[in-house]
Design a protein around this nucleic acid. Structure first.
Lengths: 121, 121
DNA sequence: AACATTAGTTACTTGAAAGTAAGTATCTCA
DNA sequence: TGAGATACTTACTTTCAAGTAACTAATGTT
């Protein structure tokens, strides 16, 4: 009789992964971090703030974050257009854990880089 | 005078991203979760436990986790070979935050799926 | 002599994420 | 008249993570 790993049930049909994969992409976390620091932000301001993201990827990533209810998109019917993005309560509750991860990464970064350097040799 | 976002300094040369990107891959988190539940585990047992990972990706992912000092690899000079993997203290300290994320994902999964469904329509 | 076992390696292919660059609509301002 | 602003979309290309499948070394087992 082998001990069955509980973990496996979590991943059998990967519902958790369905959620977390969206955060594992290149830009989602960064956008959440930015929107977590302000009340709201417009598209072009986000673009300039992040700097090296393309318009396309900004659009795509904002859309998936919106689809998951992590951010809210508000369109003002003006010309030229105005669209404001803000983080939602759900987004904020995720951001807490993301910030914990970021903090962990900052705390452990030096040690990890040292480990990597040793490992190479 | 615009308010400068603090966040930006974190990502200027992306040291945090250098660390976290490794956790955003397809298998690292799962392997850490598995190794967090046992004292140690051999290569083939990991392979069977995870099920749908290829030998190559298991090797590759174990190597990067080892390089970062998140797991420890111990080779016993026997034939046939025996190699045991175990999570390190550093790995455990990361796992705490990963588990928080997994818990958050489980708690919010239903709502998120509902949001996604609404968004499609 | 050939097969099993363990923990891999190697070479090649695939697919999805991301990047690039140009185009769009509508109005204002010079 | 035409340039600028805003928030995109579209079509095409590139890149890299991941997948596939075959091969390896060294010994014990039938």
């Amino acid at each position: 009789m082998e001990k069955k790993l509980e973990i496996f049930s979590h991943f059998e049909e990967c519902p958790v992964r369905k959620v977390l994969n969206r955060c594992g992409d290149k830009w989602s976390v960064l956008i959440l971090l930015v929107l977590g620091e302000v009340d709201n932000m417009r598209f072009n301001k986000l673009h300039k703030t992040i700097g090296d993201i393309s318009q396309k990827m900004l659009t795509v990533t904002l859309r998936t974050l919106e689809a998951d209810g992590l951010i809210k998109r508000t369109v003002f019917p003006e010309i030229p257009p105005r669209v404001e993005y803000e983080i939602t309560e759900r987004g904020k509750s995720l951001l807490v854990h993301i910030n914990n991860l970021v903090d962990w990464a900052e705390e452990n970064m030096e040690d990890i880089m040292e480990s990597r350097a040793k490992f190479e040799s």
